[in-house]
């Protein structure tokens, strides 16, 4: 319990730092959203009118005051108003979340399944050459840019093979290619870590003992190696959650989907500070929660990490 409280405290500190750092960096950028949206000459707004707009968005006070104002707003669940859309940020994110959650969730799930399958197959596959090919695959995946992968997938599966329609796809069909695009680059480092960790565990003396019992390679891998090898991979999986955000930005843009990634891309282009601030905090929150979960799962998988009762 004390452990949980301490970890929660740490998580809050991480969030506070993320919030402050984002705020400082966004302030340090030259220009702002109001400048971009309202000061273009075509609108013909007078300096007084622009000053009024600034005042309406709370952008006319010194940065420290703005910081406190934003912070208090966040603590009360008010993320401010998007300059670009003129709607509250909360509504904006709330409406985009249902589009992105299935993409991110499925993307991560597929990534994990893909990574585990690759790592295990590259250990168990019947031929030496096949094992080597499977081993080399993740390195290829790592070096593939997400946007390029998305375009290639559309080209091959939609235009050449006509397996997935681009236009008039139902929601499930519309998810297939974006999920793959998101999953493949995340699965690659995971598969690499897992495969390396399997190799390492295979060399440990207890595996020799299990083999000396007469256990075959598949049994050794499933019953004895897998759980030991998963431990480092889970840590990496927690860190890779961060990749989902960057991945979502590119994937949603390439596939023309609405969602958090798309909003992020727009907000960056327009320096919509309030939106960016909220998205960073959202991302940090997910990241912190997932890693907290990872730490809590660890002792279940590895009994050595349970509180050690002092043995005589």
């Amino acid at each position: 319990m004390a452990y949980l409280a301490r970890r929660t405290g740490q998580a809050l500190i991480v969030l506070a730092i993320a919030f402050t750092a984002t705020f400082v960096m966004l302030q340090a950028l030259p220009g702002d959203a109001i400048l971009i949206r309202f000061e273009s000459p075509e609108l013909g707004l007078s300096p007084e009118q622009i000053a009024d707009i600034r005042a309406a968005y709370g952008a006319d006070v010194p940065p420290l005051q703005q910081y406190l104002h934003t912070l208090i707003g966040f603590l009360q669940g008010d993320f401010g108003t998007s300059v670009q859309y003129g709607t509250p940020v909360r509504e904006l994110i709330g409406s985009a979340l249902p589009d992105t959650l299935p993409l991110a969730g499925l993307g991560f799930l597929v990534a994990v399944v893909l990574a585990v399958a690759l790592a295990f197959l590259s250990t168990l596959a019947p031929f030496g050459w096949l094992r080597r090919v499977l081993r080399a695959l993740p390195s290829v995946f790592v070096s593939v840019p997400v946007f390029w992968l998305g375009i290639v997938l559309i080209q091959v599966f939609s235009f050449q093979l006509r397996l997935v329609p681009v236009i008039g796809a139902d929601p499930v069909q519309a998810l297939i290619l974006p999920v793959l695009t998101l999953a493949i680059p995340i699965s690659a480092p995971l598969a690499q870590i897992l495969a390396r960790s399997i190799d390492e565990v295979q060399l440990s003396p207890f595996v020799a003992v299990v083999r000396a019992k007469g256990a075959g390679p598949a049994r050794v891998l499933w019953r004895d190696v897998a759980r030991n090898a998963l431990l480092p991979a889970i840590t990496i999986a927690g860190v890779l959650i961060g990749e989902l955000i960057g991945g979502a930005v590119v994937t949603e843009t390439v596939f023309g989907r609405a969602g958090i990634g798309r909003i992020t891309e727009q907000a960056v282009a327009n320096q919509d500070v309030a939106v960016l601030q909220a998205i960073v905090i959202l991302a940090a929150l997910v990241f912190v929660l997932v890693n907290l979960a990872v730490d809590l799962v660890y002792p279940i998988l590895d009994p050595r990490l349970k509180r050690k009762a002092v043995a005589a």
């Binding site: 440990s204 003396p205 207890f206 020799a208 003992v209 299990v210 019953r223 004895d224 759980r227 030991n228 998988l301 590895d302 009994p303 050595r304």
Partner: peptide, 8 residues
């Protein structure tokens, strides 16, 4: 010490 599976 290292010849038994630590997680079983």
């Amino acid at each position: 010490v290292s010849s038994l599976n630590p997680v079983r």
